[in-house]
């Protein structure tokens, strides 16, 4: 039972991971990334906890504090995670304006259509001079 919080964190980590790789919608994937990141933060914060300790704000008469170092690392990580989320969402907006969709399957389908249309055009361009010669 001593490891129960870690088990729950692993489950949370995997729920975020599954949302990230199984969702077709790009915003949903970024939400999955957010869940994954929060689970990683919890892993650090759980490690910092000391039984019977208090928040690391120094005060007379308190002997036991939780470890402040992981808190600092996660403070930095939270801000960086929001920066990466902002960048990801900006990319989603650009993709939406270029393709009219933010669903991965539709993006791939659109790309394939464009590719086959270009291939068909190239084939026509290559065949055109030969037809001219034969006539």
């Amino acid at each position: 039972m001593q490891h129960a919080p870690y088990w729950l964190v692993v489950v949370l980590l995997m729920v975020g991971f599954y949302t990230m790789i199984a969702s077709a919608n790009l915003v949903k994937r970024l939400i999955g990334l957010g869940v994954f990141q929060v689970a990683v933060f919890f892993l650090y914060i759980l490690l910092a906890k000391v039984r019977g300790g208090t928040a690391p704000i120094l005060e007379e008469g308190i002997a036991l504090y939780s470890n402040p170092l992981p808190h600092v690392l996660i403070l930095t990580a939270i801000v960086v995670s929001v920066a990466t989320t902002a960048l990801g969402l900006a990319l989603v907006v650009r993709i939406y304006h270029a393709y009219g969709s933010m669903d991965e399957d539709e993006l791939v389908q659109h790309d394939n259509e464009v590719e086959s249309a270009l291939a068909a055009r190239d084939a026509r361009v290559l065949q055109a001079p030969r037809k001219a010669e034969s006539s």
């Binding site: 928040a55 808190h71 996660i74």
Partner: peptide
């Protein structure tokens, strides 16, 4: 609850 009050403030404001 895990004694990380600064992290909690940041998560509530930023997250």
């Amino acid at each position: 609850l895990l004694d990380a009050v600064d992290v909690a403030l940041t998560e509530a404001a930023v997250g």
